[in-house]
Nucleic acid binder design. Sequence first.
DNA 1: ATTCGGACGGCC
DNA 2: GCCGTCCGAATT
Length: 693
Amino acid sequence: MSQLSAIPPTITVVPTDDPTALPLGLPDAGLSYAAVAVDVPLAHLDRPFDYRVPSAMLEEVVPGCRVKVRFAGRLRDGFVLEVRDHTDHDRVQPLERVVSPEPVLTPTVAGLVRAVADHWAGSFADVVRLAVPPRHATTEKAEPRQRKLPTADELRARVGEHGPGPFAPGVGGPALLAALGRGESPRAAWQPVPCAAEAGDWAYGFALAAAATAASGRGSLLIVPDVTDLARLTAACTEVLGADTFVSLHSDLGPSARYRAFLAAVRGQVRVVIGTRAAAFAPVTDLGLVALWDDGDDLYAEPRAPYPHTREVLALRASREQAGALFGSYARTAEVADLVARDWLRTVTPPREVFRRLAPRPRIASDDERALDRDPAARAARLPRDVFAVMRAGLAAGPVLVQVPRAGYLSSLVCRTCRTPVHCPRCSSPVSVPEPRVVRCTWAGHPVTGWECPECGDRHWRAPVVGAARTAEELGKAFPQVAVRRSSGERRLDLVEDEPALVVATPGAEPRAAHGYAAAVLLDASLLLQRMDLRAAEEALRRWWNATALVRPGTAGGTAIAVGPPESPTLQAFLRQDPVGTAERELGERQAAGFPPAARMVAVEGPSATVAEVVDAVLAETLPPDAAAPTVLGPGPVAAPAHSEDDWVRTSLTVPAAQGAGLVTRVRTVLATRTAYKAEGTVRVRVDPISIS
DNA sequence: ATTCGGACGGCC
DNA sequence: GCCGTCCGAATT
């Protein structure tokens, strides 16, 4: 050791009679300490840390700015949460540098980030990554685009000109717009009519709601599942609000465009933000409305830890910021039904008779052998005669949509004769066909050989439905004079013209028709209904009603026909055209089964030994008074992440919804204790996962 | 007396 | 997770 370092550090003596003096002789410059949310991955370090603000940085250090700090000896990124004149710590380090003085993490969003982290048993650092896009220095320094914003009077005039649009026939619809315009914060579960007419134009409705909110001097946040819906919403907002009034935030934007849109919002240059799930955290000042389209779409489940769901993020946000909420969809999820049952949302939908008159006429066609058409080409395409008739009639009036299952859904099998789904003889799991001629069970990967149908004894199986390519080919033969167009996955059409054509599309990739389809044929019914998922029925209805929404209203002859077993309750629900009642029943079933949203479920996933340790530790935590011990489900096998060497399992803990926060806190405590103790093995925790098994 | 390494505690 | 410190064993 050198001579120099042996000399003790200089100690500055502070006169004790000076009340403004700070300990350790630090210069008092008023606001000299910053509480920083440091980007550390460890659960037990998930809290703010204080740093001294060197006087040279005093100007730039503001709440919400990005900084670099020394933490455990290393440089790390962080956000300043608060600037204060004191600290409770005696060994504070100085801030290393200010990355940017731009206050990108507003106090409101910081509060939301904390709340989201707490709700999903995650850390602030994980959630803030979802909320604030990476900095782009050039964009930050560039001159912002000049925008001409309409005044409140102009906005009121526009809202008046447009009228209530798709809310027109609605019970409570016009009142909703009026309340938003008065600066109130109504919350609605909006059920527009699934049809290609104004009554079904959700994007127009969203734009009108944003305009009414803007007229009250407040901002709006409008969220949709994907870029296709975003394009539609962009068009509607441009028409109703004007192109200067809003920005669009989504993950397809490059770093520069993304940061530019974000800055326009955080700087208050725009008060309306539209986008996909990451935009749910966008810093809209004085938020008056959050709107969410089609909350059942699984794109709303964030794939990164802590796996928050956009619907709950927005619900949390509307509550925290006293904003209105508009959750719109053609189908209705059990979760929205739950929010309605708890009177957090009120249903807004046209009167029953208006709804039924405007909606395309729903029909179902049996898919059993006897119902097939006699026409040999139709027979080859496996088309029931009712479907053949609907297609023929529809083609006389315009394009006909044919919804077929996505390729991924084909990888299941049924008995050739009685259509009983094939299950693994060893562990009863469903089977999949990962590649041609290879049949494995989905849980354990057992190769399936020597299968025999438990119902009829047949030894042969087949794919239950043909895919898009085969369907298109067969339809071409059945309708030789008609153009057959395809839209799926990568090769996707946006719009088809009015000429008669058969448009074969996978769910979610259906192009819109310029004036609506004459008819829709939903061919994937039986396959969707065979899925062993808790949400199979809900998801099937969501897809059918989303496809139905592209068809002309029933008053203009529109028809939607689903092919499947007529006795299926889900097909019957389709026929009944009652998304609200259907979701209420679904919620009732979830309640009876003790599943979310009626209960809170925390799934712990990882190598079996680690999962067992974590679950045991959670169960060993002391329960709050009156709280019951959780119900334990599992462990059951679950897919391991790509690079894991171990097999993974999942164990789920379930408690009544009211005790959910307590359970999540206990889980979080266990995770924090484990990282502090450096326990071996990591787990993944999912609160209310969308797939339950 | 000095150096090395592994375990452990704290991170502002 | 990573760094710094502390303590015991090995090395001179």
